[in-house]
Amino acid sequence: MTPTHRDARDPGTKGPRGLGSRKKERIDELAATAGASGPVDEAGAIDDTAGVSLIASAWRRLRRSPVFLVGLAITIAFVVLAIVSSWLAPHDPGEWLLYDKVSPQSNPIPGPEPGFPLGADDKGRDLLSRLLVGSRQTLIVGVCATLFGLAGGLVLGTLAGAFSGWVDSVIMRIVDVMLSIPSLLLAFSISAVASRPSQWTLIIAIAIVQIPIFARLLRGSMLAQRSKDHVLAARALGVKKSAIVLRHMLPNSLGPVIVQATLVLATAIIDAAALSFLGLGNPDDRNPEWGQMLGRAQTYIYDHPHLAFYPAICIIIVALGFTLMGESLREALDPKSRR
């Protein structure tokens, strides 16, 4: 290990660090990976990586990484499934087809039969169709929650990173307080405010929890950019401040944010399941979603565990796909591992 990355751990955070600085330090450490880019920074690594951009060299390593490829394959399969599932599903996932076979005492869950390979759920709806079509809502929940969190984080982080001084201080103190609440508890409290829970309250609750993480991450890597030569050059040329921030600093700071977004996709889907399980999910189940299916299956978990197993396994595989992809992306973009 070279001593350089140890020093890069604190990317110019000014003033006293707030409470819970461990969580923040972890975010900052990730942010520092964007600052410490370029083969020239790494003494001894100049020989074979010289002249290759960070992204190109990252891609060269990723292409051969089985972990990344597995994650990518799962992700692509999931997205394709979400798009084509409506045509793949043998039945309408919302129609109570086998409802006449549901009786609360003897047989609450109809088993498999011809045309219904996995049986039905407690309302007699085809389980296989619900699982297939469920991929779409799951993708929507994951992507929307991540995008909203990312958007909020981008705005706050860019403001804090671009303007130092009181704007930075105010924003970072707000972010620190949000980070000082355990994330599931925060999501829980936010969704408790909604008078009528729906898919969107769920998405917003999960997204808000992600905002401070993205904001802190982006601010960290923007600060690292601020002292870079190309920013200095742009400033010397008299480029407008907004252009420096938007064209020079922001694009170069996005690396760690994108990595984080990949990982958040996985947590968003899991958190959605957790909130559904706690009764904070979308009560309208005509459009199935895996987390919601898993959350609702708890009523029948002892006699009909398969109702929980199928959506749970889907969630685990998809979350694993995003995690594998995110982790290998993080490793590939991290100058530490470029040896």
Binding site: I270, L294, Q298, Y302, A312, I316, A319, L320
Partner: peptide, 22 residues
Amino acid sequence: SLVGVAVPVFFLAFLLKYWFAI
């Protein structure tokens, strides 16, 4: 450890309860 991150905690809790308790 990667799978551990992907498995929802409450599902793991259900599995344990189902197998070892019930």
